[in-house]
Simulated scan of single mutants.
Amino acid sequence: MIDIKINITDRNGNKHEVSAPTDMAMNLMEVVRSYELAPEGTIGVCGGMAMCASCQCYVLSNTELPEMSDDEEAMLSEAFDVKANSRLGCQIQMTPGLNGLEVELAPEC
C-alpha cells in the first residue's frame, strides 16, 4: 500500500495535509469526504459522476494531472466560480504521481 500526501485548503481557508491511499481506487472528492473537510451534503452531491461540480477545486501545485475528460470540461463550463486551474475532484484518481498535490476547495454553490 502506498499512501501519498496531499495538501487541501478547505472552504474556510484552513490547510490540511492528509494521507491518501493509492490502492483503493479513491478520487480526490472521496478523500475530502473521508477527512470531513467539507460539510456533509456539500461535496460529491452527484456521487462522483461529473454532473454537479460540488467537488470543484483549484489546483495550486504544478502536479501533472490526467487529461480532463469531455464530461468534466462540459460540467466546468456550466459551473460557478470556475478558474483556469479548476478541476472536479471526483475526476482526479489517487495515484503515486499525485504525491504533493495541493488544492483549494472552490466555494460552495
Score class of each variant (00 low, 15 high):
Gly41Asp: 14
Ser61Tyr: 07
Ser69Lys: 06
Tyr35Gln: 03
Val103Lys: 01
Gln91Ser: 11
Leu37Val: 11
Pro39Asp: 09
Asn12Pro: 00
Gly13Gln: 09
Leu76Ala: 07
Leu65Lys: 08
Gly97Leu: 06
Gln56Glu: 14
Glu72Arg: 08
Thr42Cys: 08
Val32Ser: 01
Pro66His: 08
Ser69Val: 12
Val59His: 12
Asp81Val: 02
Gly48Ala: 06
Pro21Ala: 05
Val32His: 00
Ile6Ala: 06
Ala74Cys: 13
Ile2Gly: 01
Glu64His: 12
Ala79Gly: 06
Ile6Gly: 00
Asn99Pro: 08
Gln56Asp: 01
Arg33Asp: 06
Gln56Leu: 08
Ala79Lys: 00
Leu101Ala: 03
Ala38Met: 07
Ala106Phe: 07
Ala79Glu: 04
Gly13Ser: 07
Asp81Gln: 07
Gly47Gln: 10
Glu102Cys: 07
Lys83Asn: 09
Ala74Trp: 12
Cys57Ala: 09
Cys109Asp: 11
Ala74Arg: 12
Ser77Ile: 08
Ile4Pro: 02
Cys46Asn: 10
Glu72Met: 05
Met51Cys: 13
Asp71Leu: 15
Gly100Glu: 14
Glu64Trp: 00
Ala20Cys: 05
Pro96Trp: 10
Gln91Ile: 04
Met29Gly: 01
Ile92Thr: 14
Pro39Val: 12
Ala79Asn: 11
Met94Phe: 09
Cys46Asp: 13
Leu60Ser: 04
Ser19His: 10
Ile2Arg: 14
Ala79Leu: 05
Gln56Ser: 05
Ser69Glu: 15
Gly89Lys: 04
Met26Asp: 14
Ala84Tyr: 09
Cys46Phe: 04
Ala84Ile: 13
Ala79Gln: 03
Glu17Gly: 09
Tyr35Arg: 05
Met24Glu: 14
Tyr58Ala: 07
Leu105Pro: 05
Phe80Val: 02
Gly100Trp: 04
Ala79Val: 04
